[in-house]
């Protein structure tokens, strides 16, 4: 019973919240609103899956939101200046990938703790995004095929939901079913033991941070297509939301350990809460307060499972 609560307590709480909102929030349960919530969760989930990989190797990434903004501006700027959108989209993905790899190098080669390293690269990416745009947004005529990446629907279901599902399933598969996944896990759980077992632990940390950057690139391209514009700081709001989703996810399924299934459910809970609070007419600042409580509460729950501080710098 105790382990059931430890493993599924958060998810059950999420279900209870869902039921309460269905009963008391007007329009919440409509299929249009449900699909809308899922659609809006997709950016959050994709970014959070990336952050999960960094955290699995026991490294923090505070730069993914600014990297996503930079990637968005690069993609948007290229389309704006008339370059074919597939190239621009690839460039956005490449920006995320390279920025994530740079994070990995700074952490594993220059030996800067990831908290500080990614705080630095976050600032650099944010600055570059402003430099490229001159501080304004790219808006204009966009190829409808490109826009359909994020706005298209299969039947009633937005395409974004399929992108989210693909990222979650791929992330779950890699982390749980492949040697790469367990090597990353072992690196995060016991770096010295993993190293002595022949695992290239620094490489695993680089891969974790690179995947976080790549996820930022994917989210960025979809965000540009969804909003048909690109502005510096456009992904900034996702930073704490995505981190909260991952930390909340660490309280379920594999308590104390970042895991993709937990991240997905964590992102869903946060989106549902956000949406529900709006529909209930709660003031907007309540979302921020709630987010802060989720972050602190989750880490304290994880810490009690781990019987030590959940994070150290």
């Amino acid at each position: 019973m105790k382990t059931i609560i430890a493993k599924y307590g958060t998810a059950i709480t999420g279900l209870v919240i869902l039921v309460v909102l269905i009963l008391f929030a007007r329009n919440f349960a409509s299929s249009a609103n449900m699909l809308n919530v899922l659609k809006n969760t997709s950016f959050l989930t994709i970014l959070a899956v990336g952050f999960t990989f960094a955290l699995i190797t026991s490294e923090l990434d505070l730069s993914f939101a600014n990297i996503a903004s930079l990637a968005a501006v690069v993609t948007g700027g290229m389309i704006y200046s008339g370059i074919a959108w597939p190239l621009a989209a690839l460039a956005g993905l490449a920006v995320g990938l390279v920025a994530g790899y740079v994070n990995g190098l700074v952490v594993t080669v220059a030996k800067v703790p990831s908290l500080i390293a990614t705080l630095g690269t976050a600032s650099i990416a944010g600055g570059l995004a402003f430099m490229l745009t001159g501080g304004v947004a790219f808006v204009g005529r966009w190829d409808p095929v490109f826009l359909s990446l994020a706005r298209g629907k299969v039947g009633p279901v937005p395409v974004l939901i399929f992108f989210m599902a693909a990222v979650v399933i791929a992330g779950w598969f890699v982390s749980r079913k492949t040697p790469l996944g367990v090597h990353m896990l072992a690196t995060g759980e016991a770096t010295e033991a993993a190293h002595r077992a022949g695992i290239a632990t620094r490489r695993m940390k680089r891969i974790g941070l690179t995947l976080s950057g790549l996820a930022a690139g994917i989210a960025a391209v979809l965000l540009v297509a969804s909003l048909s514009s690109a502005a510096p700081q456009m992904a900034g709001d996702y930073l704490l939301n995505a981190i909260a989703a991952v930390l909340l996810g660490m309280t379920m399924f594999e308590p104390g350990r970042p895991n993709i299934a937990g991240t997905f459910v964590g992102a869903l809970i946060i989106s549902v809460l956000d949406n529900g609070l709006v529909l209930l007419g709660a003031p907007y600042y309540l979302q921020d307060i709630m987010l802060g409580l989720i972050v602190i509460g989750s880490v304290s729950v994880s810490a009690s499972v781990l019987k030590k501080a959940a994070f150290s710098v």
Binding site: L185, A186, A190, A193, A194, R196, A197, G198, I199, R257
Partner: peptide
């Protein structure tokens, strides 16, 4: 230093291979 305490026995035995 040799084992990952929170990982399963079989994961520890096959760690890295």
């Amino acid at each position: 230093l040799g084992l990952a305490p929170r990982m399963a026995i079989y994961q520890n035995i096959f760690m890295g291979s």
